[in-house]
């Protein structure tokens, strides 16, 4: 399958903070949504920065639409819509002024579509952005990102801080966007329930390293957590353990195939696992 975005062995070190992205590799096929999960400071925004060239990577390759994007590849950036967490635009602007600026930046800026989004999302075109609520600001950012007909949406914590109703509105917009088979979304978030609703693939990042990439269905239907006693845990085949976490009276063990584990370890209690629990086990647990 062809990929809209491909990262291979991307590295970036920040000597001042001692943080490093370590050989980050993943890809997003056309027509899919990739959830990019990790705790705060895991490296999600740095990875996105490397993709968009707002952060200059030390090594590795990033291919967008099959091509490495340099500063001069403005035609590639025409096809990308971006939404950052928080204030994307100057607070002294109105949505109308934003449209004027965007019209001068994007050749395919569609003012009619933008006005339609403003009406659908109940945003006043002549109200200053500084008077918008946080939810309205994020809605405006999504409307702006979609109004130049991008093929790839890159969302950096675009739903964080929003109430469940607004988040749901946003997710509907994103699902509409990927109805076109050549559209894709990279959706960075630590709100795992959002990703459970819309993502096709999920990539986990922790301390600058990718720790797991899988389809959402695989994670939700195959992955499982075994609740073991210490004695049961010691009898497990280390190859079956993705990560484990000691609790008071039990050890939770993440396995990649619950059905296989059920057949192999008949006495163990095996539960379905949510994306959040997978993240916690991978981040807070120990890996073999």
């Amino acid at each position: 399958m062809e990929n809209i975005l491909e990262l291979q062995q991307v590295c970036k070190t920040f000597p001042k903070t001692n943080f490093a992205l370590d050989k980050v590799s993943f890809s997003i096929p056309y027509g899919s949504i990739m959830g990019f999960v990790g705790e705060n400071g895991a490296g999600k925004t740095t990875t996105i920065g490397c993709i968009l060239n707002t952060v200059l990577k030390d090594s590795g390759t990033v291919k967008l639409f099959g091509k490495e994007m340099s500063d001069t590849d403005t035609e590639l950036r025409e096809k990308i819509g971006v939404v950052y967490d928080g204030d994307n635009f100057p607070a002294h602007w109105t949505a109308e002024q934003l449209s004027h600026v965007m019209q001068g930046l994007y050749t395919k800026w569609d003012n009619t579509l933008f006005q339609k989004y403003l009406a659908d999302l109940r945003l006043r075109p002549n109200q200053k952005i500084k008077h918008y609520s946080r939810g309205m600001t994020m809605k405006l950012a999504v409307a702006a990102a979609l109004s130049h007909h991008p093929q790839l949406l890159i969302l950096d914590e675009a739903t964080s801080g929003l109430d469940p109703v607004m988040r749901d509105d946003m997710l509907d917009l994103f699902l509409d966007f990927v109805q076109e088979e050549d559209h894709s979304i990279l959706f960075s978030s630590h709100i795992t329930t959002d990703l459970e609703k819309i993502a096709d693939y999920i990539t986990f990042i922790h301390n600058g390293k990718l720790i797991l990439t899988a389809t959402k269905n695989e994670l939700m239907y195959n992955f499982a957590v075994m609740r073991c006693k210490e004695s049961q845990f010691l009898e497990l085949d280390p190859n079956d353990i993705l990560a484990y976490r000691k609790r008071d009276f039990q050890i939770d063990v993440l396995v990649s195939d619950g059905k296989v584990a059920e057949r192999k370890y008949r006495n163990a209690v095996i539960d379905h696992v949510s994306i959040e629990e997978i993240m916690l086990l991978l981040v807070k647990g120990e890996r073999v």
Binding site: T54, D71, T74, G86, D87, N88, F89, P90, H92
Partner: peptide, 19 residues
């Protein structure tokens, strides 16, 4: 003013060159 919001960063993702 461009940098009191994320607009300064956002501009870099739009189809314009840094120059």
């Amino acid at each position: 003013k461009d940098y009191t919001s994320k607009w300064g960063k956002y501009k870099l993702t739009s189809p314009v060159k840094r120059a």
